[in-house]
Design a protein around this nucleic acid. Structure first.
Lengths: 200, 200
DNA sequence: TGTAAAATATGACCCCAATCATATTTACCC
DNA sequence: GGGTAAATATGATTGGGGTCATATTTTACA
């Protein structure tokens, strides 16, 4: 997933437009209606659920080239999660109608899109099993692993830009627990930590 | 999802064949290679991950008309989970090659298939958030809710054929906890329980 | 350079679900 | 009908992660 999921030229040819958003901006909100396909060009986006008490659960961390918020385009249901700019971002967005036209007229794009959904589902299958049964140590390790695999990173260790809080929001743990856990993992040489970064 | 996802006639016209399996039989195994698209005609299938210690995590309970095990057909990766017959079952299976031919030649089937994946992803999004943050009571209630919604059941209460153990395997809880929790939920009139059944 | 905010860190306490043991009830099937 | 396995039930104990309080370090930015 290092290159764009659908090439920028293709998206532009179907009428997509660029959009800039600032760090912390809400791109769309859980429960709202959708009319755009989004693809990230630059920056990072948190695709999250926000609880009543303000806690976040990060469903997917979106990296450049990846798409997000596509569910409503297929079933006309509201967004399943909110998208928040984790950094200053540049997005490409394509209107629903044009998106469907693109799928209909291009089998390969449609097929690749299906494949993307499959890879997201695999990720969810793995995460779910992990959350259900394992302790913080395993949860964190496996989450880092899946996170790498999801975007096809092979080398080890690699630098993942995640704060302790974000790691907590991805694993359903508390910051304090994440801090304590990655410290012991670090001491055992399983990973390296820096402020805002984890090397795994 | 009360009717078949792809009609039996359509599948048969593309060369699908019927297959019978007995209760408890393994239909395919996590990690194995795939060459078939499966659709359930009769019975029930548990789509599960099995831990080293033998514990199961039920990813999806498959009901008649639903498909399962499609991931490898799109990415040539191994199965993400095992399929086990929860009852005596009748399946329809279609060879990979024919499946792809079907998608290529029929846009609507392809689109509906994508939509199915989206609905599964929504289900996973919701479950994941639930597992990450909530207590047994909420986990169970929400799981029952999502389980109903996933297959479009509207009436309330409806009879769900789930044992305490299966409910535990879906929520990552222990049987004892499920038993204690649904008892209190029952006492508070939130649901009705029977042996092997939950009315919700 | 100084100040505020964000991120990281650490200790003490507690609650709740896991665990273990054991019992009872219901279904199955020869 | 009787024997066996599966499902359900319940009590006692415990440990691990949540919670709360507080401190330190780093970054941002005026």
């Amino acid at each position: 997933m290092s290159t764009a999921f659908i090439s920028e030229e293709t998206l532009l040819s179907y009428g997509a437009t660029f959009k800039k958003v600032n760090k912390g901006d809400l791109i769309f909100m859980e429960g709202g209606a959708a009319c755009f396909y989004y693809q990230l060009v630059e920056g990072r986006v948190r695709w999250v659920n926000i609880n009543e008490d303000g806690r976040e659960f990060i469903q997917v961390m979106i990296e450049p080239g990846e798409s997000f918020g596509e569910f409503p385009l297929f079933d006309d249901q509201p967004y399943a999660a909110s998208a928040i700019a984790d950094d200053d971002c540049v997005l490409l967005r394509l209107h629903k109608t044009n998106f469907h036209q693109m799928l209909r007229s291009n089998y390969d794009i449609h097929f690749n899109f299906t494949r993307l959904l499959v890879s997201r589902l695999r990720f969810k299958f793995l995460t779910l099993r992990e959350l259900a049964y394992n302790n913080p140590e395993q949860r964190i390790s496996t989450m880092l692993n899946y996170y790498k695999r999801l975007r096809g990173i092979e080398q080890k260790p690699c630098k993942l830009h995640l704060t302790r809080q974000q790691l907590a929001d991805m694993t359903g743990l508390r910051v304090e627990t994440v801090i304590r856990t990655i410290r012991t993992l670090h001491e055992r040489g399983r990973l390296t930590i820096q402020r805002g970064k984890v090397f795994y």
